[in-house]
Nucleic acid binder design. Sequence first.
DNA 1: ACATTAATTGTGT
DNA 2: ACACAATTAATGT
Length: 219
Amino acid sequence: MPFDINCHDKLHEQFQYLFEPELINELCANGKLKKYLAEEVIVEIGQSIDYFPILVSGSVKVLTEDKNGDELLLYYLEVGDTCAMTLNCCTKNTKSTIRAVVENDTELLFIPIEKMEDWMIKYRSWRNYTFESYSIRLNELISAIDTLVFSSLEERLINYLRDKAWVNKSNILKISHLEVARELHSSRVVISRLMKKLENEGLVKQSRNKIEFLEFSAK
DNA sequence: ACATTAATTGTGT
DNA sequence: ACACAATTAATGT
C-alpha cells in the first residue's frame, strides 16, 4: 500500500463531524487505505477478520448465504459506516458469517485491531462511533427481517429497488432480473412477472439490464 | 449492413 | 417449476 499524501486531507474532510482531529490523525497514521472496484468481494463467509474497516467512499452490500448457496441481501453500507459483523469478529476473534461485496467503487480504511481498544479509552468520539454503528446496524437488520417476514415479495422488491436507487444515487439501475432474484432469494421468473406488473402500474420503466425506478412520493 | 449467437425477458401450462 | 417464444445486445463477416 503506497503512502497516500492525499489521505490526510481527505479523511479530515470526510470525518470532521464524526471524529476529533486528533483521532483523525491517528487514523491516517495507522490505517491503510485500499481501493476496491465494483463486484469485488471484500470479505468472504468463513473468513477471519484481522483489520477493522471503515468505509471512506463508495458503497458495499452485505449478504448471507444459505446451505444451497443462495444469497440474501441484508443491507448496504455507505460512507462513514462500518460493519457490525467486523466489530464482533475483531473483539471476539470469530469468523465472518457474512459476505461483503462492493456495490460502487469503494475505498476502505483498514485499522489494526490493537488500536481499537486504545482508542476506546482515549477518544470519546470513537466510543460513540462504535456504539452508534452497532445500534444502526441492529436496526437495519431488524427492519430487514421485518420486511422479510411480514411483507410480500412485491413489497420487498419495491424496497430493494428504492434502497438500491438510494445507494447508487440514481433512479436508473443497471441490473438484470436474474441478479435481482438472487439478491432477494427468489427466482428469475417471479421477478420478471412482478417487474412487469410494476411497469404496468407505472412504478418502473425497464429495458434490458436496466430498471428505472419512478418514485416521487416523500417518505 | 447483414447474419449469427448468446443473454435477457415474457408467458402459458 | 419448467419449457419455450420473443426480444435485445454483442460480435463477426
